[in-house]
Design a binder for these strands. Structure first.
Length: 363
DNA sequence: AATTCGTGGCA
DNA sequence: TTGCCAAGAAT
């Protein structure tokens, strides 16, 4: 017997409860006051794995800088990344730009309306395709994000491990089973908002919850243990030594390439080592460029260790600010190029690099 | 298909 | 201090 179809909350009761709650408690967010797919898409990309409070200023910046998808498509990637600077997960910004170009070139500047068509665009996965199709075009598709996993697992007592491989199938089916025939867009907004405000990850106030009587987890005292998430992140230790090469007021920087953190962002000459050794002669071993550089420079500053925390990495970084002798003709490696202070400011940079620059270079 | 992509807030 | 994790997607 299938408990999902026999649960008392089915037959639209759950949807009605949660939609009523939403109409009374929803936040007034700018992307909720439009049906323009460009603004809705923009907000959804910004909000991927990101809190509303953190993404809000970026939403306003992007709307102002790029009022239309054509404006975004015509921008340079560096300009888009620079505006995204500080928000993290920079592939979102690169894919945002790619998709803007694709919409302009392949779709005549008109966003596709169907879930299945939206799914083909870069940076748009199952959740975002459903969100755009639902909010902008009223398609009857169920959104499934972190909020929905949490709300459904608690209310219906679904114990499937959300970090397991069959979780998506199980919860998609559950989400679809509670999706109403009409007003599915409001329902989708409602279940996410309910997860964000009422059914919060830590210590939700179930005493005042509109679903306290019907919630399986609340009845069994399992709210704090749902959803089940078994997988823990493994954090890798890394040790960076950045060399800030300055000569006559200009700086050597490079665009990060390859599949590592901060792809597309600019940084300095980097020496990554396996152990936490901060010794110049050690760092310069088997590095003819660095050896020559050190010989022809004075150390303007040797920073303390910056510990930068990412989800999967803990990066300990020392910045060596080198002032190259004015008269010396330094041959930069292929990847490095010279930039003056204004250009350095304009380039997209990681928060780690930007923090140092703000503290000691831009002043 | 398990990993890897940022950053900041919170307990 | 440490761990959790927030409107996920790409590979």
């Amino acid at each position: 017997m299938n408990k999902q179809t026999t649960h008392p909350l089915k037959n639209d009761f759950f949807s009605k409860k949660i939609t009523n709650w939403y109409l009374q408690h929803k936040r007034d967010l700018p992307w909720r006051n439009t049906q323009n797919p460009y603004y809705i898409w923009l907000s959804e990309i910004i909000l991927q794995q990101t809190r509303v409070a953190q993404g809000m200023p970026y939403y306003y910046k992007f709307v102002e800088a790029f009022p239309t998808v054509q404006d975004l498509a015509n921008a340079d990637e560096n300009e888009v990344l620079r505006l995204w600077q500080g928000l993290g997960y920079y592939s979102r910004a690169r894919n945002l730009h790619k998709t803007a170009k694709m919409v302009v070139e392949d779709y005549n500047g008109i966003f596709p309306e169907k879930y299945s068509e939206l799914l083909k665009l870069k940076g748009i996965g199952t959740y975002t395709a459903a969100a755009i199709a639902s909010f902008a075009f009223g398609e009857k598709v169920a959104v499934l994000d972190g909020n929905v996993y949490r709300v459904l697992s608690r209310v219906f007592g679904e114990v499937t491990d959300i970090s397991g491989k069959d979780a998506k199938k199980v919860f998609t089916q559950l989400a679809e089973s509670v999706l109403p025939t009409s007003n599915s867009a409001t329902h989708n907004q409602a279940i996410m908002e309910f997860g964000a405000i009422q059914c919060t990850p830590a210590s939700p106030n179930c005493m005042f919850c509109t679903l306290s009587m019907e919630c399986v987890a609340n009845a069994s005292g399992q709210v704090a243990h749902l959803p089940v998430k078994s997988k823990k992140v493994k954090v890798k230790e890394r040790f960076f030594n950045y060399f800030i090469i300055e000569q006559n007021g200009i700086f050597a920087m490079r665009k990060r390439l390859g599949r590592d953190v901060w792809e597309g962002m600019y940084d300095f000459y980097l020496k990554e080592i396996e152990e936490n050794i901060q010794d110049l002669s050690y760092l310069a071993m088997e590095d003819t460029f660095l050896s020559e550089l050190i010989k022809e420079s004075l150390i303007k500053r040797e920073s303390s260790i910056y510990t930068h925390i990412l989800t999967h990495q803990r990066i300990q970084t020392k910045f060596w600010h080198l002032e190259v002798n004015n008269s010396f003709l330094l041959h930069l490696p292929q990847e490095l190029e010279w930039y003056n202070l204004n250009e350095v400011d304009d380039l997209p940079k990681s928060t780690l690099v930007n923090n140092y620059l703000k503290e000691y270079v831009f002043e």
